[in-house]
């Protein structure tokens, strides 16, 4: 899945997806759940707190 497709699916810009991937932005709970929903897996498998 491309960054643009994921961005469109969760309703953010591609730059935000890039920032999340690079650990430069912590998304809101709403966006985090949407991303997990797109990948059909639990939230803790997509995100972890360090």
């Amino acid at each position: 899945m491309s960054q643009q497709m994921l961005a469109d699916a969760v309703g953010v810009t591609r730059q935000t997806i890039i920032a999340i991937e690079k650990n430069k932005y912590s998304p809101s709970l709403e966006v985090a759940f949407k991303i997990a929903g797109v990948f059909r897996c639990p939230l803790e498998r997509v995100f972890s707190y360090e």
């Binding site: 953010v12 810009t13 730059q15 998304p27 966006v31």
Partner: peptide
Amino acid sequence: SGGNPDERDRA
């Protein structure tokens, strides 16, 4: 055409 500002832009 990046679209409207999202939550990161607003933050």
